[in-house]
Design a protein around this nucleic acid. Structure first.
Length: 589
DNA sequence: GGTCTGACTTGACGAAAGTTAC
DNA sequence: GTAACTTTCGTCAAGTCAGACC
């Protein structure tokens, strides 16, 4: 089996394999082989990144104004001005931090004459430039079909040339093969660096990673790479350091690639191993709630939260460099409230904090008594801004988890709990007698339970109310159709009674069928409306893509005769190709 | 142990593409 | 045929985690 797997993989195929134990064996062998020296590939060849197009100067008649007077800007200054002008109707430009950061960085790039003159942002007139870009956008949208086709062909050609690489003998799609264009940094939430200038990436900034014996990509004419290296222990093809946080950005493979697929598979296998030991781990952390060591108590309470509430680990962050957000280990006193009694429940913890992407986490959770008592203890003599778990770091937590199970880290609990919830919910909600639409509602509801657990929110779509209304109109229309059809059936029946001929009989049957069809359509619409309403502020995509073992979904589809296309779109089917191929209806997470 | 940093995953958002309604 | 709406997908920011170093 292992040989077959390797061979199949080399061909870019996924082994079809129904026996789970067999795939387990294949995986562990693969892991063994992979872990020997950390080698990720033997051969890698690609074209390097596709660079953002150079700045196109504004036409003569589009002007920047200062203090009401038109002012010709140097090219570099003009380019940065256009970044701001383009964003004029975005909320960002109303924020003081954004304005100040932008203005600061902009002035740094000005010529000394410009800097002497341009001293206040509020005297800058970007309006004409803004209008120019809005118009340009509309013109592009209104382009005739053939022109659009030409643009598309141009993009396809670039994708074809830069969008693929050769990895260990097969052609693989690259995820992000373009460098990020220059612009103004858009941090999320209350980000202290929002509005700062994100500089243009040049070939001189880029490190290329490929095989020694491959055709090394040529830098654009007149340029050089920062470095060319041959590191087969990492998976990236190119990288550069970005100037806002000085973090490294990478060009990597598409999720559909073998490399990423195998990694994904491995992730779910780790989560499945957790399933086997989770009860033991749970009794252990319960025991630790009574430990004499403060460190252990904090660790065990934090782990309880991570397990029960699917919180993120919560690494420390550098103050003032990013938005103030937290996860489990970085929770502060101000983020929880303890209620001995609340709404008829005992020992309730009220969480209120900003998590990743500054998404608010708000939850009132009844906890076990020892947890509550411990929290009271942790809070003693602390101020709002102090760490709740002052003796705990994600590092020590993960080291502890590693001791409990090989490969176990805090985030595995999120994967495990998400996947097991999906499996349980699907079991509880699916009725094999239902039609496909109703089964899909059950699937979405199961998916939704996970999204709620993981706190995956979305802002209500701008068109939500309207599209809800439209759907309601459709439903009303269908109802009317149904009433009409019923009247017609009555009429047809009366006709049959009077005439008693074949034609009238056929007509009655026809009307009956029509009613059935309309009823079905109506039910489908009503299900759609329910689904939509329940999904108003919940994002299903993130859990589907990152937390739910796809084999659960594939098995469910097979078991209940739901076409896989109903739950996974094209991209998702490509990403989960490994699971679609190997899973049969009996798969258990 | 703590800190720093490189590599990799996760995440919301919005533009583009696709579909439906008129 | 096109406007209106929905879905998909690319983008890039923001996390997690491990290993090096002290």
């Amino acid at each position: 089996v292992y040989k077959a797997l390797t061979a199949a993989s080399l061909l870019g195929l996924w082994i079809c394999n129904s026996a789970l134990t067999v795939s387990d064996v294949a995986l562990s062998r693969w892991q063994e082989e992979k872990s020997d020296d950390g080698v990720k590939w033997k051969q890698l060849e690609h074209q390097g990144p596709y660079f953002a197009p150079p700045y196109e100067p504004l036409p003569e008649d589009v002007q920047f104004y200062y203090d009401g007077q038109p002012m010709k800007l140097s090219l570099a200054t003009e380019e940065i001005a256009t970044f701001y002008a383009k964003m004029l109707d975005h909320e960002y430009t109303t924020k003081v931090v954004f304005q100040e950061n932008f203005f600061n960085d902009w002035r740094k790039e000005m010529t000394s004459e410009e800097r002497k003159k341009i001293k206040h942002l509020e005297k800058c007139g970007f309006g004409e430039m803004h209008k120019y870009f809005v118009d340009k956008n509309e013109t592009r949208k209104a382009l005739p079909k053939e022109e659009k086709q030409k643009l598309k062909e141009g993009a396809d050609k670039i994708q074809e040339e830069f969008g693929y690489c050769i990895l260990d003998g097969h052609r693989e799609k690259i995820g992000n093969f373009k460098t990020e264009p220059p612009g103004l940094f858009r941090g999320r939430g209350d980000h202290p660096k929002m509005g700062m200038l994100k500089k243009r990436i040049m070939p001189e900034d880029v490190i290329i990673n490929c095989s020694k014996d491959s055709k090394i990509p040529a830098p654009p004419p007149g340029h050089k790479w920062k470095e060319v290296r041959f590191d087969n222990k990492v998976t990236w093809l190119a990288s550069w350091t970005e100037n806002i946080q000085s973090s490294i950005k990478y060009i990597m493979l598409n999720p559909s690639s073998k490399l990423k697929g195998e990694k994904d598979w491995q992730k779910y296998e780790v989560a499945r191993r957790l399933k086997g030991v989770v009860n033991k781990i749970r009794s252990q952390y319960r025991a630790d709630w009574k430990s004499k060591e403060m460190k252990k108590r904090q660790r065990s309470v934090a782990l309880y939260f991570i397990d029960k509430l699917a919180l993120r680990a919560g690494n420390e962050k550098e103050e003032g460099e990013t938005a103030d957000t937290v996860g489990c280990c970085s929770l502060r006193v101000e983020h929880i409230k303890l209620h001995p009694k609340l709404d008829g429940q005992e020992y309730v913890v009220e969480f209120d904090f900003l998590g990743k992407d500054s998404i608010r986490y708000y939850n009132k959770v009844p906890v076990e008594k020892p947890v509550f008592k411990n929290l009271q203890l942790f809070l003693e003599n602390k101020d709002d801004g102090d760490d709740l778990f002052d003796r705990l770091s994600t590092n020590t937590l993960n080291k502890h988890l590693q001791d409990l199970m090989d490969g176990l880290t805090a985030k595995v609990f999120r994967t495990y709990n998400a996947s097991i919830t999906l499996q349980e919910q699907l079991k509880a909600l699916t009725d094999s007698e239902d039609n496909v639409a109703a089964k899909l509602l059950s699937y979405n509801r199961a998916n939704r339970a996970v999204a709620i657990l993981c706190n995956h929110q979305r802002s209500t779509p701008k068109t939500f109310e309207k599209s809800m209304q439209n759907l309601q109109t459709k439903i009303d229309g269908k109802k009317e159709q149904l009433t009409d059809a019923r009247v017609e059936l009555k009429r047809a029946k009366a006709d049959l009674k009077a005439k008693k001929d074949v034609r009238s009989k056929a007509n009655v049957e026809k009307k009956k069928k029509l009613i059935e069809k309309i009823k079905e359509q109506l039910a489908k619409l009503e299900i759609q409306a329910t689904d939509k309403e329940e999904n108003k502020q919940i994002a299903l995509g993130t859990s589907k893509l990152n937390y739910l073992d796809p084999r659960i979904s594939v098995a469910w589809c097979k078991k209940f005769g739901v076409p896989i296309e109903k739950i996974y779109n094209k991209m998702q089917r490509e990403k989960f190709a490994w699971a679609i191929d190997m899973t049969d209806e009996d798969f258990e997470f």
